[in-house]
Simulated assay, not measured.
Amino acid sequence: MNWDQIAGRWKQVRGHVKREWGRLTEDDVDRVDGQREKLVGLIQEAYGIEREEADRQIRNWFSRL
């Protein structure tokens, strides 16, 4: 699976995102709309972490899908 497939199935995947990053609100997840860079930024902001760490978390999550 690649990120384009995630973006295309965003409505199905959004529940997985909420479970992984519980601090993100429904509105946050809706705003991401499958865009990886937006997700990185929101995770970074919500958890107060560096961009590289947010990116690493997304890669790890993505590998488990």
Rank of each mutant, 00 (worst) to 15 (best):
D4L: 09
W10D: 05
N60Y: 15
W10C: 04
V40A: 06
L24A: 04
E50W: 03
G8H: 04
G22R: 08
L42A: 07
G41V: 09
K38W: 07
A7D: 04
E20P: 01
F62C: 11
G48E: 09
K38C: 05
G22I: 03
G48V: 06
G8R: 01
W21E: 04
W21V: 04
T25N: 00
I49C: 13
V17I: 15
W61M: 14
G15E: 13
T25A: 00
G22F: 07
F62R: 13
L39D: 08
E20R: 05
V13E: 08
R31T: 09
A46R: 07
L24P: 04
R56A: 15
A7C: 03
G48L: 10
K11G: 02
R59D: 15
G15L: 12
V29K: 01
D28Q: 01
M1K: 10
G22C: 05
V32I: 08
N60G: 13
G34R: 01
A46I: 02
R56C: 12
E45G: 07
L42T: 03
I58F: 15
A46Y: 00
N2K: 07
N2A: 06
D55M: 08
Q5A: 10
V17N: 08
Y47A: 05
G15S: 13
V17Y: 10
G15F: 14
N60E: 15
Q57Y: 15
R31Q: 08
S63C: 06
E53R: 12
W3P: 00
L39M: 10
L42H: 08
R51F: 05
E45S: 09
H16G: 12
N60K: 15
L42K: 12
E45I: 09
M1V: 13
G41A: 13
G41E: 14
W61A: 14
L42Y: 12
E53L: 14
V13A: 07
S63A: 15
V29Q: 01
Q35R: 11
A7K: 07
T25H: 00
V13W: 06
Q44E: 11
G48Q: 07
D28R: 00
V17L: 13
H16D: 14
N2C: 06
E52T: 04
W21K: 08
S63N: 14
E50Y: 10
G41I: 11
A7H: 01
L65C: 03
T25S: 05
R31V: 08
N60I: 15
A54Q: 09
R59N: 14
Q12N: 06
I6S: 01
M1D: 09
K18N: 01
V29C: 01
A54P: 10
K38T: 12
R36P: 00
W3R: 03
I6H: 00
L39C: 07
R9A: 13
F62Q: 12
E52C: 00
Q35F: 06
F62G: 07
Q44W: 06
K11I: 07
R23N: 08
G22T: 09
R19T: 10
W21L: 06
R36G: 01
D55Y: 03
V32T: 00
E26Y: 03
N60Q: 15
E20K: 04
S63G: 10
E26V: 02
D4C: 05
N2P: 02
R56W: 15
N2L: 06
R56Y: 14
I58T: 14
L65D: 03
L39R: 05
G8T: 04
E53D: 13
G48F: 06
Q5Y: 07
K18L: 03
I6L: 02
Q5K: 08
V40Y: 10
Q12K: 12
I58L: 15
Q44C: 05
